[in-house]
Design a protein around this nucleic acid. Structure first.
Lengths: 238, 238
DNA sequence: CTATCGGAATTTGCTTGCAAATTACAGTTG
DNA sequence: CAACTGTAATTTGCAAGCAAATTCCGATAG
């Protein structure tokens, strides 16, 4: 009886167990991408990241594969990995899917959210409006995302939550660009007011409808981007 | 001028280039899982698959990571990989997401599908009804899926198409179980009739509504499954 | 006969190393 | 001066090998 911790059976799977090199690599690289340190189109060299993270190449390679399946990285055989570069069409497509899933999440959240969760959304909403009034863009967007994450969590559908998380990560590197074009915060705030109202009233259909067309900082601003670029064309083979 | 193919620039990225060991491993293992040869819960041993596929362990490991991010495999650190096992809740959650995305796909397809594509759906539908009348279950389900795939393709949203493909792959191993409980084909066929009608009429809203609640062989039958099991419980530490 | 303990065998995680392919660069030529 | 060719350097893909952790299995005690 040296170190019998529990009389019956120890729930082995409870703790996520300490991080493996591979997991550390995935998380580190994902962060670098989502935070924008590794911008879209950036080449990911195995050796370079291996040195930088102090992890040998093999787990780095495995991390690339995982991130590729997540949609954050593109791997071309024999030519290495690069941060996925989305053109405006892909961004638009992705936002469309996100909006659709957000709507589903809202509809489900209207049914399943606890009172506490509703109030948490309300609190986040208040703070978001404050940030808006103070012009604190960064905080505004963080709270905006926090609200959407909370709604996803309240949907009680982990699969849905997971999908949303993955898709949002994919567009995250572009959010910052979009932030600069900030006009229609008003509309977004108004949408959020309605959302909160609908959530409190447990009106799933209404939440669905609003979220479906919410596109807070999304599609609306893509056209702006479309104008702003025009120069940064992709290689067009003529 | 030995082999100058084009006078300007050769489109380097056109061909997918020949398959690497890693890619072969991913495809082979995915097939084994989706086809049901490696059933849910089945342990995936690196050495065993390495021997079986004639590929060394490294690319196999990379394949595991990729499939894990796709949602087909679960990896527990230091304990190996196994084919993902979905309980009924997860299945239900996944079908909910699929239905939502199918609805979006239908709505978009109503707008973007070419006349040819509409007729292709019509043709698939006819053959599906035939298979139904002849009681050819396997063919019926194949055509059913083909219809949904065609609608996804006609949505002209590759991101959406990709998501649907991934999610459908995840539930694929369970479809066969579900096939055995075949009662409400009628309802499914009726839905499909309406879908085709709506698609021809370019009625996106109607297509959306039908697909949203289509759940052809899906949720409806889950309860059946729930009864049928009760014995095949997971290890419950109790 | 059941349950617990200890050691051997298997299995995973990671490092290292090598061959092949790609990329970069420099010299040469038109 | 620009474009092309050939070679060198980098980089990826894969395989083998070693250490650590886990699992398996038999032995022992209750």
């Amino acid at each position: 009886m040296k170190q019998a911790p529990s009389p019956t059976i120890q729930p082995v799977d409870s703790q996520p167990s300490r991080t493996s090199m591979q997991q550390r690599a995935v998380d580190a690289i994902r962060d670098l991408i989502v935070q924008g340190e590794l911008p879209p189109g950036c080449r990911l060299q195995e050796q370079a990241l291996s040195d930088y993270l102090g992890i040998s190449r093999t787990p780095i390679r495995e991390a690339f594969r995982a991130l590729a399946a997540e949609g954050l990285v593109v791997i071309k055989p024999r030519r290495g990995a690069m941060v996925r570069e989305m053109d405006l069409d892909e961004l638009s497509d992705t936002f469309q899917v996100i909006a659709s899933l957000d709507a589903l999440a809202g509809e489900l959240a209207a049914v399943h959210a606890t009172g506490l969760e509703v109030e948490r959304v309300a609190s986040l909403h208040e703070r978001m409006v404050e940030s808006y009034q103070q012009g604190d863009m960064l905080e505004y967007f963080k709270l905006n995302q926090a609200i959407h994450r909370q709604i996803a969590a309240s949907s009680r559908n982990p699969v849905l939550e997971r999908q949303l998380q993955a898709l949002n990560a994919q567009v995250q590197p572009y959010r910052f660009d979009i932030n600069n074009v900030s006009e229609n915060w008003r509309r977004s705030i108004a949408d959020h007011e309605i959302m909160l109202e609908a959530l409190r009233a447990r009106d799933g259909a209404r939440l669905h409808a609003v979220l479906r067309n919410h596109l807070p900082d999304k599609l609306f601003l893509l056209n702006k981007l479309r104008e702003l670029r025009t120069s940064g064309r992709r290689r067009r083979i003529a």
